[in-house]
C-alpha cells in the first residue's frame, strides 16, 4: 500500500508564496527521507499530510484517505514530531506522554501503560518521573519522539529529529529511528536538510527544492550497482591509475583518491597486485557506498534543474564526518 500519494499537489499561501508546486510523488512503506533546504516546502508538505492545511490544487491521499475530508482518521493513525520546542517544562515526561496518548484516543489505563512503554523504547524509562524542564536537549528530543509514538501510529512524521543534537546524540537518534522503522514495523517519514545524515537509515529518498520534486527513488535502486572501492596511496597516484586502467579497470580520480567500481572479488586482487608491483605505500583501500548526494548530482534529474543545493548539503556533511 502506498503511504502517501500526491498528484500535482500545489500550495500557495495568501501572500503569494508558493510552498509546493505541482508535486507528484508516491511514498512507499519504509523509512523515507524527505530532504530539501530550509524553505523547500517540507513543513508545508507535513501539514497537508496531517490535514491541517488544505492544498490549493491537486490531490493527496494518506493511508488511503483524503486528509481534507478524513483528517481525524488520519491523525489518529499518524504520529507527528515537530521541529521546534513543544514540551511543558513543569510536567514529568510520564504525565505529558500519558496526556498526549489520551488526546490520541487511548483509554485512561492503556494511555499510562503505553506512555511508559514508549518512554522505555526511547530510553527514558528511569527518568520518566522527572520534570521535563530539567532534561537535556537530547532527552527532550526523545520525549518528543515518545509522544509521537505512544499511540502506535502506522506512520511517523519526524520534522528534523536531529535538530540541536551533538554528533553522539544524532547517531543515537538515527539508530532509534532505524529501529522504529525496522523492528517496530512503523513507517517513518524523516524530514531533514542534511541529506548526508539521513541517507544512512533511509530505504527511500524524496528530494524537494523550492516546492518541486527533484527526485524520488528507493535507495536500493540507487546504490545497488554503485559499490565502489576507494584507493589512496601516499605517492605515485598517477602511475597506479595508469596501471589500473591498463588492467581494464574503469578508474576515476577524486582528489587524492582513486575510485574503482567493485565488479567482484578479483577487483581487490587486481588493485593489490598493481600496488605491490609498483611498490607504492598503500594508505587506504576500502569499500564505500556511493554517496547519495553524488547520485543526485549525476543521476537523471526529474525536473531538469541542477540540484546544486542538495549536492552541496551532502558534500558539506560528508566533509564534517
Amino acid at each position: 500500500m502506498t503511504l502517501i500519494a500526491t498528484q500535482s499537489l500545489t500550495k500557495t499561501y495568501g501572500n503569494g508564496v508558493t510552498a509546493l508546486a505541482d508535486l507528484t510523488v508516491g511514498i512507499e512503506p519504509g523509512i523515507v527521507g524527505l530532504v530539501g533546504a530550509n524553505g523547500a516546502g517540507k513543513s508545508t508538505f507535513i501539514k497537508i499530510v496531517l490535514g491541517l492545511l488544505s492544498p490549493t490544487s491537486g490531490q493527496v491521499r494518506v493511508l488511503g484517505l483524503d486528509p481534507t475530508v478524513d483528517g481525524n482518521q488520519i491523525r489518529a493513525r499518524v504520529g507527528y514530531m515537530p521541529e521546534h520546542d513543544c514540551l511543558p517544562p513543569d510536567l514529568s515526561a510520564a504525565e505529558f506522554v500519558t496526556h498526549m496518548a489520551r488526546m490520541s484516543g487511548l483509554p485512561k489505563t492503556t494511555a499510562r501503560e503505553r506512555a511508559s512503554e514508549a518512554l522505555r523504547h526511547v530510553g527514558l524509562y528511569e527518568e520518566r518521573y522527572r520534570q521535563i524542564g530539567g532534561y537535556s536537549t537530547g532527552m527532550k528530543q526523545r520525549v518528543k519522539l515518545a509522544q509521537a509514538l505512544v499511540h502506535d501510529p502506522d506512520l511517523l512524521l519526524l520534522d528534523e529529529p536531529t535538530n540541536g543534537l551533538d554528533p553522539a546524540g544524532r547517531d543515537a537518534m538515527l539508530n532509534l529511528i532505524e529501529r522504529i522503522g525496522t523492528e517496530f514495523g512503523i513507517s517513518v517519514l524523516v524530514c531533514s536538510h542534511l541529506l548526508g545524515e539521513i541517507e544512512r537509515i533511509c530505504t527511500a529518498l524524496v528530494a524537494i527544492d523550492g516546492g518541486r520534486l527533484l527526485r524520488a527513488a528507493q535507495l536500493s535502486d540507487m546504490t545497488a550497482a554503485t559499490e565502489v572501492l576507494s584507493v589512496e596511496v601516499s605517492e605515485g597516484t598517477d602511475e597506479l591509475a595508469a596501471r589500473l586502467a591498463a588492467a581494464n579497470l574503469p578508474v576515476r580520480r577524486d582528489g587524492r583518491l582513486l575510485l574503482v567500481p567493485l565488479a567482484d572479488e578479483t577487483t581487490y586482487d587486481l588493485i593489490l597486485t598493481a600496488v605491490a608491483e609498483l611498490d607504492l605505500p598503500l594508505h587506504r583501500l576500502d569499500q564505500r557506498r556511493h554517496r547519495v548526494a553524488e547520485l543526485f548530482a549525476t543521476g537523471p534529474v526529474a525536473s531538469g534543474e541542477p540540484p546544486a543545493a542538495l549536492a552541496g548539503a551532502g558534500a558539506t556533511e560528508g566533509g564534517i564526518r
Partner: peptide
C-alpha cells in the same frame, strides 16, 4: 507559550 498546540492539532480533535 510551550508550543504544545501543534501536538494537539496533530491529533484527532479539531
Amino acid at each position: 507559550h510551550n508550543g504544545v498546540l501543534p501536538l494537539y492539532f496533530a491529533r484527532p480533535l479539531r
